Amino acid sequence: MITGSCLCGDIRFETDAEPLGPSMCHCGQCRKQSGGIWSSAYVRDADLSITGPVSWFEASPQAKRGFCARCGSYLFWKAHDEDTTSFALGAVTAPTGLKVEKHIFVRDKGDFYEIADGVPQKD
C-alpha cells in the first residue's frame, strides 16, 4: 500500500497497485511549479484513491496538474488522453520501496545542478 498527502493533510491519496515509471522530471513547468525537480510514479486511475479538495491547473492542452489550494503542495499530473495519474513521490509516506528509473526532459533542466546518479536520461 502506498499512501501520501499534501503538507497540510487536506488531500490524501493511496493505491494498492504497484506504481510504474518512477522518474525525475526536469521540464520547465515542473521546475516552476515545484521549485526544482519533480519526482513521480504513476498508476491507473481506477487504482488511485484521492480524498480532499484537489485544485487542477490546465498546464497545457495535453495535461493538468493537481495541487492543494490551502498549502500549495503539487501532488498530481494527469494527461487528458490517458487513464493513469502520476503522483508526487515526495508526498508519499515512507518507505516507498521505489527506485528512480529515469530522468525526463533533461534538455530543459536547470543550469544550477548536474545529474550524476547514473540513471538513464531522456531529452
Rank of each mutant, 00 (worst) to 15 (best):
G4S: 03
S5T: 02
S5G: 09
C6T: 02
L7E: 03
L7Y: 05
D10F: 00
R12H: 06
D16K: 10
A17M: 05
G21T: 08
P22K: 05
S23F: 00
M24A: 15
H26K: 08
H26T: 07
G28P: 06
Q29L: 10
K32Q: 15
Q33L: 15
S40G: 13
A41D: 01
A46R: 09
S49Q: 14
G52T: 03
V54H: 04
W56R: 04
F57I: 01
A59I: 05
S60F: 03
P61N: 06
Q62P: 00
K64L: 00
R65F: 03
G66A: 02
R70G: 06
G72A: 06
Y74W: 14
L75M: 06
L75D: 02
L75G: 02
F76A: 04
W77C: 04
A79F: 13
A79E: 12
H80K: 08
D83G: 07
T84V: 14
T85K: 06
S86H: 13
L89P: 07
G90P: 11
V92L: 09
T93A: 13
T96P: 11
G97A: 11
E101R: 13
H103M: 09
I104C: 08
I104K: 06
V106Q: 10
D108Y: 07
G110E: 13
D111Y: 14
E114T: 15
I115T: 13
I115C: 14
A116C: 12
G118I: 07
G118C: 09
V119H: 08
P120Y: 09
P120V: 10
K122G: 14
D123P: 11
D123R: 15
